[in-house]
Design a protein around this nucleic acid. Structure first.
Length: 278
DNA sequence: CTACCATCCTGGTTGC
DNA sequence: TGCAACCAGGATGGTA
């Protein structure tokens, strides 16, 4: 579920209730998720104060006053719940529970367990295995047409696949790649190397725009995704292609319909009429 | 370096 | 209504 806009939204929800607060108690209800939790996980969290937090790609990084940083990755099915009452009993798949000094309880839930929690050395965040190979942030200045063109050059795989590669640009997932390609009018199976400069700068612009709009909407709620405060995101109502197989293309004056194809085992939704093959 | 594929899991939906 | 098959927002790690 969570791509960059959803992770950003969850982080923004956690910030006001966690920043500046000490972790009074950490309950670890299983050994790990995607990977085992770090050694003495609960002990290292207990008593630590959350100094601040930032998002990198699809990761939330919470800086603690112990020179360690708590990394949170929601994977496919991860959710975070803020319980203001502080007494909500952990439910099924609530694997980690943090009780903050302000009385708020934070519950990390992840049925499929593709998510991850880890503790990193705050002085060497970039050397962590999950962070060291990440490409630039799509909303930052380092992701620009020049950089993107250089990374597309000589790449034989389809542009859809390239955009999902976190080493090229970090934070996009299946949904927002489909949406950005539709906005840019580029077919997902276009060869990466075949994109011309106009395609490339259009794609950069539309990637930025769709992510920015989705963040403003609180992310997209598919299945039961919610913001950390329990509110539903509403960007899913703005999807042009994702999950809309058989529906008319929403582009004005386009008489095409959205179709679904499979690329590298993932669904791609697009309009074969207005999205040109480069 | 690039490309391809299996894999980690649960749960919701679809189809017989 | 039961049950099996299939599908899902991610990303690693192995192999070629």
């Amino acid at each position: 579920m969570p791509e960059l806009p959803e992770v950003e939204t969850v982080m923004r929800g956690l910030m006001p209730v966690m920043a500046g607060q000490k972790i009074n108690r950490a309950s670890i209800n299983r050994e790990g998720l995607r990977w085992p939790f770090p050694e003495r996980f609960a002990k290292r969290l207990k008593g630590a104060r959350v100094q601040g937090m930032q998002r990198r790609a699809k990761y939330i990084l919470m800086a603690l006053d112990t020179e360690e940083t708590l990394l949170v990755h929601l994977g496919m099915s991860g959710k975070v719940t803020i319980d203001e009452s502080g007494a909500q009993p952990p439910a099924k798949h609530d694997h980690v529970v943090l009780d903050m000094e302000n009385g708020v309880r934070i519950l990390f839930n992840d049925p499929r367990r593709f998510g991850a929690l880890d503790l990193l050395d705050s002085a060497n965040l970039d050397s962590h295995k999950l962070l060291k190979s990440l490409g630039p942030e799509p909303l930052g200045n380092a992701f620009n047409p020049e950089y993107f063109a250089a990374r597309l050059k000589g790449r034989k795989s389809p542009v859809k696949t390239t955009l999902l590669d976190q080493k090229i640009v970090a934070g996009l997932g299946n949904i927002y790649v489909c949406e950005a390609l539709w906005r840019a009018g580029i077919a997902p199976q276009s060869s990466s190397a075949a994109l011309d400069p106009a395609h490339i700068s259009s794609l950069v612009t539309h990637i930025r725009d769709v992510l920015t709009e989705a963040i403003a909407a609180g992310g997209s709620s598919l299945k039961d995704y919610r913001q950390a405060n329990g509110a539903l995101g509403y960007f899913q109502h703005s999807f042009a292609t994702y999950g809309r197989e058989g529906a008319p293309c929403p582009k004005p004056d386009c008489d095409g319909g959205i179709i679904r194809i499979v690329q590298s085992g993932r669904s791609s939704f697009y309009c074969p009429v207005c999205q040109q093959q480069a």
